[in-house]
Design a protein around this nucleic acid. Structure first.
Lengths: 230, 230
DNA sequence: CCAGAATGCGAGCGACCGCTCGTGTTTGTC
DNA sequence: GACAAACACGAGCGGTCGCTCGCATTCTGG
């Protein structure tokens, strides 16, 4: 068991996890702790972040932290769940509506802009979602989420190129997601105007990768050999 | 100090690190230990890999391990250095010679093929080079190496598009490297025919990204609508 | 053959980590 | 005001980790 067998003496036989009646103070503490956790996670990564450091950052004792979270993992899960909720709420179904007549540039640009904006506002999101540092159970929930994201992209792709073998669509979706992920990392590594420039590069990568696939369907006149002289 | 302040009571005031005269047995042990380290690192990552586990995998005691390496970091560094040497030796200056007349497809394809082949043969290379799990000093050496790689790509790009502002060339190089890295991750996550398919996708991504930049320079008639009939 | 160096062992040190628990304080309810 | 529940504290428990140290064994040069 080369995993992370440090300890796992958490609660186990609790089919219903009935939490104690929270007071307003408790809710405030939870928010405080999650904010501190976001800070610590995004600067040191998940495994290197110690619960004592999170408690210290929040200005409380380790015992207080464990009043509200059964273990370290639960902190990350709750944080991720809240971020996911906030994202859905802010951007709705970001790439769900696959308007079949939208030009490729617009569809890709909008999706990339939204996701990147959210990640820039909440740096910890990248750490939790795409960080390779996450052990055990968290990953399982992430895998589900990752799969739904991929299938969203697949759906979008399917509406763009109805005549393609499913395996290829899946592969293309994985490539798009991987490239987006890499682009996001590049974007987060820069700031200001340079950051904006990288955002445009990411869009270019995706658009140019997908352009030949959608071909010149409909009247969308994107041209790989087009010039600025009409 | 959120770094890794576990211990650092290694040797410090040793300007010349004069190693003891190695015997053949010692060299064998070193190779054995590095092989074990490669296995453990690539399956558990750097930080999660324990030196005791490496020693156990190599079939020796922890004390023996520290006979040959001053600390855990040195194992990773030596491993990386040997891999780098092996790579230079196997593929020469992989993307150094910037033949200015090579078609884009060929240049990108060759470079991608070489790098990916090497990474497939030595999975630990990805962990050590691109793994986000590496603390402290190792990263410094990696940054140097990363910078030289980027400047190699810049050089290659400069020969392809001589009339481009340096900042843009740098940015393009970073994008190419990031996309290659993401593609490598995708490739390593699959096997057999699927893996080969992903390799081709990575090439497509890079070629299509760079194609509009090089335009139709010279007579290299790469065409997004080109066929296989000469 | 033998002195000394190189190699090998493994219990264990010190540090940190996730987490607990006994105790004390604050808050809501009657 | 009384009482229980929720909240807060922080020393410390059990554990792993990187690494050491004293000692035994094997190799090498003279």
């Amino acid at each position: 068991m080369p995993d992370n067998p440090q300890q796992d003496n958490a609660q186990k036989d609790r089919p219903q996890k009935e939490q104690p009646r929270r007071q307003a103070r408790g809710e405030r503490r939870i928010a405080q702790l999650l904010e501190a956790a976001a800070s610590v996670f995004s600067t040191t990564g998940y495994t290197a972040a110690s619960t004592n450091a999170i408690a210290r950052e929040a200005g409380v004792s380790p015992g207080t932290l464990y009043q509200f979270f059964p273990n370290k993992e639960a902190i990350a899960i709750e944080l991720r769940d809240r971020l996911m909720h906030e994202m859905r709420e802010a951007y709705g179904e970001a790439l769900a509506p696959v308007d079949p007549a939208t030009p490729l540039e617009e569809a890709v640009g909008a999706a990339v802009d939204r996701f990147i904006a959210f990640n820039c506002d909440h740096p910890v999101f990248y750490t939790l979602m795409h960080g390779p540092d996450i052990p055990g159970r968290i990953t399982e929930a992430h895998d589900v989420l990752h799969a739904t994201l991929i299938s969203r992209i697949e759906g979008l792709l399917h509406s763009l190129l109805p005549d393609a073998r499913p395996a290829e669509v899946t592969r293309t979706a994985h490539v798009c997601f991987g490239m987006y992920k890499a682009g996001l990392e590049l974007v987060l590594a820069h700031e200001g105007a340079e950051r904006d420039a990288y955002v445009e590069e990411v869009k270019k990568v995706l658009i140019r990768y997908l352009e030949p696939l959608v071909g010149d369907r409909l009247g969308t006149a994107h041209a790989t050999a087009a010039k600025s002289t009409p």
